[in-house]
Deep mutational scan, measured.
Amino acid sequence: MRVFPVYAPKLIVKHARIFLTGVIWVKDLGRLEFEKGRFLLPRKSLPKVKQAILELNELIEAQN
């Protein structure tokens, strides 16, 4: 598990694309899981977490 002390979308996306499957922890967002290079949306999450995951997945799609 990698810990990101700040929310840096480009760096987080780079990590997810390299490792494809895993878990990261982002300060103020908490634990985020990714599989096959995409972030998974938890069943229950705060609106800011949901927005961050959608933003990260959009960045991943834009890079493909």
Results as ranks from 00 to 15, higher is better:
residue 1 M to H: 14
residue 1 M to Y: 01
residue 1 M to N: 15
residue 1 M to S: 14
residue 2 R to M: 15
residue 2 R to N: 09
residue 2 R to D: 13
residue 3 V to C: 15
residue 3 V to L: 02
residue 4 F to V: 02
residue 5 P to M: 15
residue 5 P to F: 15
residue 5 P to W: 15
residue 5 P to E: 15
residue 5 P to Y: 15
residue 6 V to T: 07
residue 6 V to L: 07
residue 6 V to P: 01
residue 6 V to E: 08
residue 6 V to G: 04
residue 7 Y to F: 07
residue 7 Y to W: 13
residue 7 Y to P: 01
residue 7 Y to G: 01
residue 7 Y to Q: 02
residue 8 A to W: 12
residue 8 A to H: 13
residue 9 P to M: 04
residue 9 P to T: 04
residue 10 K to L: 13
residue 10 K to T: 14
residue 10 K to D: 10
residue 11 L to R: 08
residue 11 L to W: 08
residue 12 I to Y: 01
residue 12 I to F: 02
residue 12 I to M: 05
residue 12 I to E: 01
residue 12 I to S: 02
residue 14 K to T: 10
residue 14 K to S: 11
residue 14 K to Q: 14
residue 14 K to V: 09
residue 14 K to I: 11
residue 15 H to S: 03
residue 15 H to D: 02
residue 15 H to C: 05
residue 15 H to R: 03
residue 15 H to M: 04
residue 15 H to W: 07
residue 16 A to F: 03
residue 16 A to C: 09
residue 16 A to D: 00
residue 16 A to W: 02
residue 17 R to V: 09
residue 17 R to T: 11
residue 18 I to F: 14
residue 18 I to C: 10
residue 19 F to K: 12
residue 19 F to C: 10
residue 20 L to Q: 10
residue 21 T to D: 10
residue 21 T to E: 10
residue 21 T to P: 01
residue 22 G to T: 02
residue 23 V to H: 10
residue 23 V to C: 11
residue 23 V to Q: 14
residue 23 V to M: 09
residue 23 V to Y: 13
residue 23 V to L: 10
residue 24 I to S: 01
residue 24 I to K: 02
residue 25 W to A: 04
residue 25 W to S: 04
residue 25 W to L: 10
residue 26 V to R: 00
residue 26 V to C: 04
residue 27 K to S: 13
residue 27 K to W: 14
residue 27 K to R: 05
residue 28 D to W: 14
residue 29 L to P: 00
residue 29 L to F: 08
residue 29 L to K: 03
residue 29 L to Q: 00
residue 30 G to C: 03
residue 30 G to L: 02
residue 30 G to P: 00
residue 31 R to Y: 11
residue 31 R to W: 04
residue 32 L to S: 01
residue 32 L to C: 02
residue 32 L to T: 00
residue 32 L to K: 00
residue 33 E to I: 14
residue 34 F to H: 03
residue 35 E to C: 13
residue 35 E to P: 01
residue 35 E to L: 11
residue 35 E to T: 14
residue 36 K to C: 11
residue 36 K to D: 09
residue 37 G to H: 03
residue 37 G to E: 05
residue 37 G to N: 05
residue 37 G to K: 04
residue 38 R to T: 08
residue 38 R to L: 10
residue 38 R to G: 04
residue 38 R to F: 11
residue 38 R to Q: 08
residue 39 F to A: 01
residue 39 F to R: 01
residue 39 F to S: 03
residue 39 F to H: 05
residue 39 F to P: 02
residue 40 L to D: 03
residue 40 L to I: 09
residue 40 L to Q: 07
residue 40 L to V: 11
residue 40 L to W: 05
residue 41 L to Y: 10
residue 41 L to D: 05
residue 41 L to F: 10
residue 41 L to K: 11
residue 42 P to Q: 07
residue 43 R to C: 05
residue 43 R to P: 06
residue 43 R to W: 04
residue 44 K to Y: 11
residue 44 K to G: 07
residue 45 S to L: 10
residue 45 S to P: 09
residue 45 S to V: 13
residue 45 S to G: 08
residue 46 L to G: 13
residue 46 L to A: 12
residue 46 L to I: 12
residue 46 L to E: 07
residue 46 L to W: 14
residue 46 L to R: 15
residue 47 P to I: 11
residue 47 P to V: 13
residue 47 P to H: 12
residue 47 P to T: 12
residue 48 K to W: 10
residue 48 K to Y: 07
residue 48 K to M: 09
residue 48 K to Q: 07
residue 48 K to N: 06
residue 50 K to Y: 08
residue 50 K to W: 08
residue 50 K to N: 06
residue 50 K to T: 07
residue 50 K to C: 06
residue 50 K to Q: 07
residue 51 Q to E: 08
residue 51 Q to F: 11
residue 51 Q to H: 12
residue 51 Q to P: 03
residue 52 A to H: 05
residue 52 A to R: 09
residue 52 A to L: 05
residue 52 A to I: 08
residue 53 I to V: 10
residue 53 I to E: 00
residue 53 I to P: 00
residue 54 L to P: 01
residue 54 L to N: 07
residue 55 E to W: 06
residue 56 L to K: 04
residue 56 L to V: 03
residue 56 L to A: 00
residue 56 L to R: 01
residue 57 N to V: 02
residue 57 N to R: 03
residue 58 E to Y: 11
residue 58 E to V: 12
residue 58 E to L: 14
residue 58 E to N: 10
residue 58 E to Q: 13
residue 58 E to K: 12
residue 59 L to V: 09
residue 59 L to Q: 06
residue 59 L to M: 13
residue 60 I to G: 04
residue 61 E to G: 08
residue 61 E to M: 09
residue 61 E to S: 11
residue 61 E to L: 09
residue 62 A to S: 11
residue 62 A to M: 12
residue 63 Q to N: 08
residue 63 Q to L: 11
residue 63 Q to D: 14
residue 63 Q to A: 13
residue 63 Q to Y: 09
residue 63 Q to S: 11
residue 64 N to F: 05
residue 64 N to W: 04
residue 64 N to E: 13
residue 64 N to I: 11
